[in-house]
Design a protein around this nucleic acid. Sequence first.
DNA 1: GTCTATAGGACGATAGAC
DNA 2: GTCTATCGTCCTATAGAC
Lengths: 193, 193
Amino acid sequence: MTTTSVRMLTIATEQFAEKGYAGTSMRDIASAAGTTQAAIYHHFPNKQALYEAALDQRFAATIPAILSGLAEITNPEQRLRELVQRVMVMADEDAQFRQLYLRELLEGNPASLATLADNIYGAMQDSIASLAKDLNNRADIHLLLFSIIGLICHHLEARELAMLLPGNVPDNRELATLSEHISQLLLSGIKGL
Amino acid sequence: MTTTSVRMLTIATEQFAEKGYAGTSMRDIASAAGTTQAAIYHHFPNKQALYEAALDQRFAATIPAILSGLAEITNPEQRLRELVQRVMVMADEDAQFRQLYLRELLEGNPASLATLADNIYGAMQDSIASLAKDLNNRADIHLLLFSIIGLICHHLEARELAMLLPGNVPDNRELATLSEHISQLLLSGIKGL
DNA sequence: GTCTATAGGACGATAGAC
DNA sequence: GTCTATCGTCCTATAGAC
């Protein structure tokens, strides 16, 4: 992995997250990376391969960072709050990550979905399993995983829409408010499963 | 609204939902509708206008249907279950609706988001407000709305990904299982807000 | 390893006949 | 109201010089 191809990957990630696969051209990526479109083909065989490499690089780096040190929080309720908080901060600051993930769910092909599954599952499996077990051992860890990620991503992604709903208070788009709402809903909700 | 333009809208909705705005060409729509690309411009000024009309038509029709008769269920817990059930069945059978919504959140411009806000808010406001009030009057109705929709859409959209996670049981992709998980999580969760 | 140039085709949109 | 034809521009991908 040369420094050039890493730079290309980084730029490609930005563009794909922002405009989607179909909405991003090789020219877009090349010009944002300060090179020509043809040069990319020296490093990646085609657009699809570049996309999958971008996806893989991005997910492999971020998910372990979120979970680092989490297991040391012994109180399970506090551990869930911390997990939600971390995922929220990451998914808020790093819109790339969130958007790549959501786009993958919408239009990912089996090959790139498998990349996603490896990265998510390999890293998060243990954390969620331990949470589910400590909070309520009847809960299914996969259903719980998707509930957590779904709540977080959707609340963050819907902020622009929320702004347009009459009666919506600005406070509802604050990270702290969203995080508190989601944590509370999950904490009480999981116990009742 | 002529029958021709309605047919064009219907086809356009399918294509946009499936492949996204950038991924759908006017030629795609025209050939699926059995006409030529130029003919569309007689009915709609440009691609963007066609997209917004498709969005509006689709949402204006579906959301009132989901809520019809819901208010007559007096038990609020049962009313929530029924709402979740109906949204799930619709969002499952009508992947178009779900995908259009999720794509809008990702890449909607302010104009088309406003269309969405009108359609969602105008129709669902009262139902959610009444649920929030009856179940727990401290709950914010907008936060609750996005939690419900977020859980449902994400679980449905993630089924293909779930299939790839080791240890996932096929039962977890059944509508009834998902519906039960989400209803339970929400019912207990809302009480704890 | 990056460039220019270009092939070959798809794109959105328009013009004008019928 | 729909067609054919076309403009100008974009696209992915390749060829070949340096």
